[in-house]
Amino acid sequence: MDFDVIFSSIPALLEGAVLTIEITALSVLIGLAVSVPLALMRVSHNPALWMPVYGYIFYFRGTPLLVQIFLIYYGSGQFREALEAAGLWHFFREPYFCAVLTLTLNTAAYTAEILRGAIRAVPYGEVEAARACGMSRGLLYRRIILPKAFRLALPAYSNEVVFLFQATSLVSIITLLDLTGVARIIVARSFAVYEIYITAGIIYLIVTYGILYIFKKVEFRLSGHLREREGMDAAAPAAKAAAAQPVKPAIAIR
């Protein structure tokens, strides 16, 4: 093991990690914003609303992300004239734009599916109670269904964010200098193959568990009403069980 190579390449790798986190954050935020209306369309009973969303989710979950990246980055070249005419070509020429676009579309599909499951899992009694109180549909979704669904979706969503974070390593294939991209360049120059890739792997590992830690904190805060209060006897055994078993965002399979 050549430790000098490792130490001298850490600043460059960290710079790459910043781009990795930036791309992840952008895609996660835009993807989340897009996925909420998509999930609402998906649970709708109107076929004109749920069928296209179903097709979109099925396509993006059923094909490899790398194919999607190639499809958008290289595939857009086939429609160059049309895109130039529409003034969009200079976006699709940029690997950065294509990477964020693909990752956003990908994560929006997975997130919409997670949210769909969570919306379906909202106890019917709560919906009924809200209706009995005279809430309109909009108010019902805003005050009852969506807040509950977000909380239910959080463990699965934390997995999705971790997967997306790791999936950003694929953007190095379309020449972006993210953490993996920087590592590949340093390896090509220094031939310190396993030293550099293992260092990059460790950086990914640290950030991954950092993300999981943040989600755990958020989950803890959001489940305050389920925990036993200080100095009070356990009145509700269900609440006690929930407190004894904090929901663990162990990484599961997407």
Partner: peptide, 18 residues
């Protein structure tokens, strides 16, 4: 589960022989 697949593939394919 903490390291991307691509990095692991690169480690095995290029790293192991070296």
């Amino acid at each position: 589960r903490g390291v991307p697949e691509l990095i692991l593939i690169l480690i095995v394919y290029y790293g192991t022989p070296t």
